[in-house]
Amino acid sequence: MESAEPHAHSAQPREIKIAHSPDSDDAFMFYGLATNKIRVNGYKFTHTLCDIETLNQKAMHEAFYDVTAISFHAYPYLQDNYALMACGGSVGEGYGPMIVASQKFSLSAVKKLKIAVPGMLTTAYLALKLFAPEIETAVVPFDKIIPEVLAGNFQAGLIIHEGQLTYGQSGLHKVIDLGQWWREETKLPLPLGGNAIRRSLGNDVMLKVTQALRDSIQHGLDHREEALSYAMQFARDLDTSLADKFVGMYVNERTLNYGEDGREAIRKLLTLGHERGIIPHPVNVDFVG
């Protein structure tokens, strides 16, 4: 006869589905969780790796993942289903997406070109439209932008991720760094990507999972060498010292906590986007953790 005692130990851990991009900085952040160095009692974390524009679209149309990396530009489109985590963001301190070209263009000349961009929901695209509202764009996968410019299919491209460190090796010229432009305009850093968490998880779970991510980021920063060697498998075309530099640019104190000016920068970027007609919805930014 079966015992009527409840099987306390057989309770399945609650699965939290996490999605982030296959970049060295994201891999560095999630190293602690992905390798079980950071555990949370009663929870199991599963990781899906996918490029950021696909994640933006999936979060917008399906709200599929519990935690998802997103471009800040995408947030207004998914704010009903997701809140922003107060950690895990990539913020450019006077640097960010760049327009690069096969020749040296003036700023007024570049505004008249058709530019390859990595996706309409990327923050890079939003910053570009704030800089040059009239500019013509065509969407090209982010890792194909430099090859497309080199092939002569576009005169200029908007680059994100590691391309910011490697474009010079391809013989391309920097026309403008939008992170630098944004800092001159606003005196603020440029928030590029963050992590969003599904509201339907409820407050307690949202807070617990956000803390787990913060612990994972702290673990990476505290065990930099191990976290970096884990992240290297996702470092497209970067040697260790460049990967280290790239991770340092986008995983730092601000990744643990945006700070007041970081939060202000997120609000300002999205409010300006709305005021200038780039983002159709009014934006309500709220942070978890």
Rank of each mutant, 00 (worst) to 15 (best):
H7D: 07
H7R: 06
A8L: 07
A8F: 04
A11H: 01
A11V: 02
A11Q: 03
A11R: 05
Q12F: 01
P13R: 12
P13S: 14
R14S: 12
R14Y: 13
E15F: 04
E15Q: 14
I16N: 11
I18C: 06
A19T: 05
A19H: 05
A19C: 11
H20L: 09
P22E: 05
D23A: 08
D23K: 09
D23R: 02
D23Y: 06
D25H: 09
D25S: 12
D26E: 10
D26M: 10
D26R: 08
A27S: 14
M29E: 12
Y31W: 15
Y31M: 08
Y31L: 02
G32I: 08
G32V: 07
G32R: 07
L33R: 07
A34P: 03
A34C: 11
A34R: 09
A34I: 05
T35I: 04
N36Q: 11
K37H: 15
N41L: 11
G42E: 09
Y43M: 15
K44R: 14
K44Y: 08
F45S: 09
F45W: 05
T46M: 12
H47K: 11
H47A: 13
L49M: 14
C50S: 15
C50L: 15
C50G: 09
D51K: 02
D51I: 01
E53W: 00
E53D: 10
L55G: 07
L55S: 13
L55R: 09
N56V: 08
N56R: 09
N56I: 03
Q57I: 07
K58N: 14
K58C: 11
A59Q: 13
A59W: 06
M60W: 14
H61M: 13
H61L: 14
E62P: 01
A63G: 11
A63P: 02
F64W: 08
Y65I: 06
D66W: 01
V67E: 04
T68C: 04
T68E: 05
T68Q: 09
I70S: 06
S71L: 00
H73I: 00
H73N: 15
A74S: 15
A74D: 09
A74H: 07
Y75M: 02
Y75K: 03
Y77V: 01
L78T: 04
L78F: 05
D80G: 06
D80L: 05
N81P: 03
Y82C: 02
Y82D: 00
A83L: 04
A83G: 03
A83F: 05
L84W: 03
L84K: 06
M85F: 03
C87E: 02
C87P: 04
C87W: 01
G88F: 02
G89H: 13
S90I: 00
V91F: 10
V91G: 00
G92A: 12
G92P: 13
G92H: 08
E93G: 10
G94V: 13
G96R: 04
P97V: 00
P97D: 03
P97I: 00
P97W: 00
M98N: 09
M98E: 12
M98Y: 06
I99A: 04
I99D: 03
